[in-house]
Write a protein that binds this DNA or RNA. Structure first.
Lengths: 236, 236
DNA sequence: ATGGTCATACTGTTATACAATAAAACCAAG
DNA sequence: CTTGGTTTTATTGTATAACAGTATGACCAT
């Protein structure tokens, strides 16, 4: 008998999953307020179930609330983005270091890069992001550190939400594939400092890309003015 | 009018707090199983409230469960301890780097060290640990990184639980104070790499101390045998 | 305008019940 | 005595309903 741990999803998990999908897909947008009764009716589950699901998303950082207030979809400030990328860089650089020093080259990451390389430049952005997630996920898991994984999970949701709103459609699959391939090669090389450096570069490229998008959006909405404090959290 | 954000505690928070205190104080010991009805009766609050409180402690890592099973107090394996210290080192070294580069010297940390220095060597271990926590907490908070703080919070509970079971009583307040003082001085110096190094040393000293305690305990229970896989999770 | 009261909608909490699951006890053959 | 299946029981997961506490905005009086 092969002990294949099979997965079941509880009701709250299902609700939480659907809800986060809705948030990532823009059904609910930053600033939107979600009341428990409303959600309870929508999913036709008791309010307590909704509450449990909400708690999960609160931990994932894709919902927020203050006491006795309804939850809302967060709008990330520039500080949030900075913070997010800073800790992500920290975690991923450590991951690179660990994998390198142990000579681990996770299969899942290799597969993810291959999938990227197969994508033509006209493919959907969503699919590309999926492989990107798969890539980094595989690296983290390969470290075997439960705490690192837990932490990464808690920021990756925020990361995804941030990307949802701060990305222009013009991702280039070929460039993306190349970057990840280089990163993976650096790990394979066994040169720890080179791998860490490659990781740092990879993440910083991703960050500048997001920043460019942010400024472009800002420019579109506020032509003329530079570096004003615009979307931030003026409307919460 | 000074906007002093005042704190209220909800029922579930109160339960969660009491419960974690009980765990830290050894009322509930590693391996102990807690059923919801039992807790519900004990605190005289409905089961739903207990469930919510449990979720909080699950996230803090001081309770665990599998689906449809009762929660239990985790017993940390050697791998857990290793992992815990590894990520803690990662976070605290990054903290040191940040504070140093920004020239921040948190007041709370200074106060905590002073408190340690006031303790005579006969003082209670609990109090010492409290200041230790206060010290590191102050450092993390001063970084201003919400994510780093969240991460630290999620491991500090586990850390405390681990210390609860893997510490001999012979902490030396004077040594403890000295170590922290050195660490703080390193940050004050502004030399980033020196501060990071000091941090690393401080944490590794703490880790070796715990490891010694573990081995001592093991030796007591298993005289003769070396490095056997003993307490680990044989009894869950 | 200012300040106070009230109405309303929502969250936080409690109570109760039932369905689904897991573990133990039990029983029945082989 | 062991294997395999059945029943029992304790416990979690889910559902329904109600009420109390809080935040918010409308309304009113000054």
């Amino acid at each position: 008998m092969s002990t294949h741990k099979l997965r079941t999803v509880s009701v709250v998990e299902a609700v939480a999953e659907q809800l986060s999908e809705d948030i990532f897909n823009g059904i609910y947008r930053p600033g939107d307020v979600l009341t428990e009764t409303q959600l309870s009716e929508r999913f036709d589950v008791p309010r307590q179930t909704i509450r449990s699901a909400i708690v999960m998303l609160l931990h994932d950082g894709i919902l927020r609330r203050e006491r006795n207030k309804s939850v809302y979809v967060p709008l990330f400030s520039e500080d949030d983005i900075r913070d997010l990328f800073a800790v992500r860089r920290l975690v991923e650089m450590e991951t690179a270091r660990i994998l390198c020093s142990r000579g681990i080259l996770p299969e899942g990451a290799e597969n993810a890069v291959r999938s990227m390389e197969r994508l033509s430049d006209e493919n959907s952005c969503d699919e590309l992001l999926k492989y990107d997630y798969q890539f980094h996920q595989a690296l983290i898991e390969a470290t075997g550190s439960t705490r690192l994984q837990k932490f990464y999970r808690s920021i990756s949701s925020e990361m995804r939400l941030a990307l949802t709103y701060f990305r222009s459609g013009d991702f280039s699959p070929s460039q993306m594939a190349r970057e990840h391939r280089e990163f993976l090669d650096a790990i394979r090389s066994g040169d720890s400092s080179a791998a860490v450096k490659a990781c740092q570069i990879h993440i910083e490229e991703s960050e500048t890309f997001v920043n460019q998008t942010i400024h472009a959006q800002r420019e579109r909405m506020n032509p003329g003015r530079m570096a004003a404090s615009m979307p931030d959290e003026a409307d919460l």
